[in-house]
Design a protein around this nucleic acid. Sequence first.
DNA 1: TACGGTACAGCGCAAAGCGTAGTAGCTATG
DNA 2: CATAGCTACTACGCTTTGCGCTGTACCGTA
Lengths: 110, 110
Amino acid sequence: MRTWIAQMRKGLVELCVLAVLREREAYGYEVLQRLAEADSLAFGESTVYPVLARLAQDGMLRVRVAPSPNGPPRRYYRLTPLGAARLREMLSYWNEIQTEIAKLTKGDSE
Amino acid sequence: MRTWIAQMRKGLVELCVLAVLREREAYGYEVLQRLAEADSLAFGESTVYPVLARLAQDGMLRVRVAPSPNGPPRRYYRLTPLGAARLREMLSYWNEIQTEIAKLTKGDSE
DNA sequence: TACGGTACAGCGCAAAGCGTAGTAGCTATG
DNA sequence: CATAGCTACTACGCTTTGCGCTGTACCGTA
């Protein structure tokens, strides 16, 4: 993986994870696979699990453990109000950045 | 600065710097100030200068030194063909990410 | 018993943003 | 001429984080 791609993804994992959990709860492995469907957002396990743990510890996610039919118990994560607020914040900043970069690459009007 | 913002900007500085230099050459301080006009992309000196040095060392930028009327000599940077190619690569990936995140946050069609 | 898929955890490294501070040239003010 | 302030760039070190690699545990199938 070219290094600049890894750098570009920094901080985006949080946004993506929160976005995936925006409507329905999900367990780690599920989040992993949902993101893998978009190959530009395909993160590894060692990337996603720590993020989930971090977000949970920061009060952004609530955890619920439930048995799995296929393996070890699953840890289901759900957005807390704090997490939802953070997601909104991040999306807001994300949109700002998009606008500014679009300006940079499109117009030379200044 | 909240930490997630710093993380979200990682890798974006390169893109922004390359984008600023897309059409006309500029010296470091100028790049700094052009980015500062968009406050969501306002990076500090300790962020931009190392990026310029890195990009130059990697052959993405060509450097030209010229005296300044106001202070120490300026280092003018200009995109090389390699740098232009990198910028296209990064913008392509950037667009992919935008699309995927838009999908994540908009539709629940899968 | 061995294998493969599921589900998660831990370790350690490298990259990069950024705060802080320092250097040096030029102009303006008193 | 001394001080301050703007310009332009450099250097150091901290912290966060993505990620490769490895390990563990549960379950079903052959």
